[in-house]
């Protein structure tokens, strides 16, 4: 841990309370097939764009 450990009343380390956690909707969308099909296409396009920026003729 990067900060001194303190404990909450329920016994969990404090840093569990200081982090961002996804909402139920975010978690649902992560495995919702229709949405993920869309994301599959979008992610592939984003990655292809990065690949295209890979190496270059020497300038």
């Amino acid at each position: 841990m990067t900060t001194p450990k303190t404990v909450t009343p329920l016994g969990r380390d404090e840093h569990w309370l200081t982090v961002t956690k996804p909402t139920a909707m975010t978690r649902f969308l992560r495995t919702f097939l229709l949405w993920q099909l869309v994301r599959f296409v979008v992610l592939n396009l984003k990655m292809l764009r990065i690949i295209a920026m890979g190496h270059h003729p020497k300038r």
Binding site: I50, I51, M53, G54, H55, H56, K58
Partner: peptide
């Protein structure tokens, strides 16, 4: 003739 600097390329 080619360059592939890690400071000029991205990663997926």
């Amino acid at each position: 003739t080619q360059t592939a600097s890690m400071a000029e390329m991205g990663a997926a």
